[in-house]
């Protein structure tokens, strides 16, 4: 393998991995603070990809304003999601929430996925594929040509991760979210309102998932039925990185992204998704502690 090729694969892995990290971190923050295992998380990502595609390709918006709109729109979706589906579970024991949230969000995932594929095929294009092809020119770094869209994705991911980090470490609501994730009993005793926290986390988490979907299809196209697979990836990355742990999610996401890209290169692209499922099993079996510690007691 030549060096430029290696570097190209490396950048590809970083892009995919950064996006996995972003999506996985929002997933695991939701899991850690609310005990909701959001099976629909990957579907929200796909919905974000679809919305971005619609805005950019069919309505002619620029990529960045489109992402802004998607993020804002899905803040609203997240609020509705919390109010309609998860509010009824408030006050149940955390183990119970975990299990019933799986069934509820699994149902939601299937419903959303089916509707998306159905209506897209009917009203937008017969073969639904979500992809953005923005005209951002590529540039050379030494011998290596860096694709403009990929660099843009990496840049935006870095900014979003930075913003999330500041949100969690510098703002009151971010600290409350970390507190709830670390020790729910302690958070209750000192008078934090867990509903307020879970509302904020779900809203922001779902917007982050949708945004990462929009960014994803700047690099790799998606179809409407890949949501559940993406959820599995979110689960893998958050479990490997430690639930609710941002640096951990970044490291695990990038590791998985690189593993997929290099597997795809050597064994053929059809084997990359398999790679991530195998990693999921490895993580489930080898690091159960990481999964459990992240979610309180």
């Amino acid at each position: 393998m030549t060096l430029p090729l290696f570097l190209e694969l490396l950048v590809g892995g970083l892009v995919v991995g950064g996006l996995y990290a972003l999506m996985a971190f929002s997933f695991s923050l939701i899991l850690a603070t609310t005990h909701v295992l959001n099976v629909a998380h990957g579907v929200f990502m796909v919905l974000g990809a679809a919305a971005s595609t619609l805005l950019v390709r069919h309505l002619g918006l620029g990529v960045v304003p489109a992402f802004g709109l998607v993020a804002a729109g899905f803040l609203l979706v997240g609020m509705i999601f919390e109010a309609v589906l998860l509010k009824p579970m408030a006050g149940r024991a955390s183990g119970e929430v975990l299990v019933s949230s799986i069934l509820v969000t699994f149902g939601l995932a299937l419903a959303l996925e089916a509707m998306l594929g159905f209506y897209w095929a009917r009203h937008v294009e017969p073969q639904p594929i979500f992809a953005l092809h923005p005209r951002i020119s590529s540039f050379a770094l030494g011998d290596v040509v860096v694709s403009g869209p990929r660099a843009t994705v990496l840049g935006i991911v870095a900014v979003v991760v930075g913003v999330l980090h500041l949100l969690l470490t510098r703002t009151r609501i971010g600290k409350e979210a970390r507190a709830v994730a670390q020790n729910l009993a302690g958070a209750l005793v000192i008078g934090l309102n867990p509903r307020r926290v879970s509302r904020a986390v779900l809203t922001i988490g779902i917007a982050a998932a949708a945004l990462s979907g929009g960014l994803f299809v700047m690099a790799i196209p998606l179809n409407p039925f890949e949501g559940l697979r993406l959820t599995m990836i979110a689960f893998t990355v958050s479990a490997a990185g430690g639930v609710g742990n941002l640096p951990g999610a970044l490291a695990a996401g990038i590791a998985l992204g690189l593993a997929e890209v290099f597997t795809g290169f050597w064994a053929g692209p059809i084997w990359s998704p398999m790679m991530s499922l195998l990693v999921l099993f490895a993580v489930l079996l080898l690091r159960p502690a990481a999964i459990l510690t992240g979610q309180g007691r």
Partner: peptide, 20 residues
């Protein structure tokens, strides 16, 4: 005007919320 899987998904959501 809705695909069947959407109905089943919906049933699962409604059932697990209202009649677990």
């Amino acid at each position: 005007p809705v695909p069947a899987p959407a109905i089943y998904g919906g049933i699962l959501v409604v059932m697990s919320l209202t009649m677990p």
